[in-house]
């Protein structure tokens, strides 16, 4: 999975990279699920997710927060993430997976705006995101 963990004294950061912005949003969602222990091989169900933000980085936080809610509160475990429509302020995507309710391995309180960054480096989009654990 194309992400690395980065250190933050209070919390945990992840750095995600992908060749396109759409792929970046997909990989960031999968990275978050991986950290939480919210992945599954099962693709029984499909959930549609809509998010909006004031700009691209805001949208990234809102999207990940939506995924976090579905995983933590609804017990949804994720197999596949698709971004169907993306602008700088709106996203429509879907999650394939199953409502297994299996125990999570980490409690992520929130996806924060702290030191949040999306950069375009060497033909890769790179997002740095700090999670409050």
């Amino acid at each position: 999975m194309p992400y690395t963990l980065i250190d933050h004294t209070a919390d945990l950061g992840m750095r995600v990279s992908a060749p396109t912005v759409e792929a970046l949003f997909v990989e960031a969602a999968l990275a978050l699920c991986d950290i939480m222990g919210g992945l599954t091989p099962s693709e029984e169900e499909r959930l549609t997710v809509r998010s909006s933000g004031i700009d691209r980085v805001d949208l990234l936080v809102r999207w990940l927060q939506e995924v976090l809610f579905l995983v933590e509160v609804k017990g949804f475990r994720v197999a596949k993430v698709v971004v169907e429509h993306l602008t700088d302020t709106d996203l429509r995507g879907s999650l394939r997976g199953a409502c297994t309710g299996e125990p999570l391995k980490a409690e992520v309180k929130a996806v924060t705006y702290h030191n949040l960054e999306v950069a375009h480096i060497d033909n890769q989009y790179v997002a740095t995101i700090i999670l409050d654990m």
Partner: peptide
């Protein structure tokens, strides 16, 4: 508490701009 904070941080990112408050860090 986690969700309330998240809901209102998001709302206040926009509110700060409406009220003319410059933020060195969106958090």
């Amino acid at each position: 508490g986690h969700q309330i904070c998240d809901d209102y941080v998001h709302e206040m990112v926009s509110a700060a701009s409406r009220h003319g408050i410059a933020l060195p860090d969106r958090q």
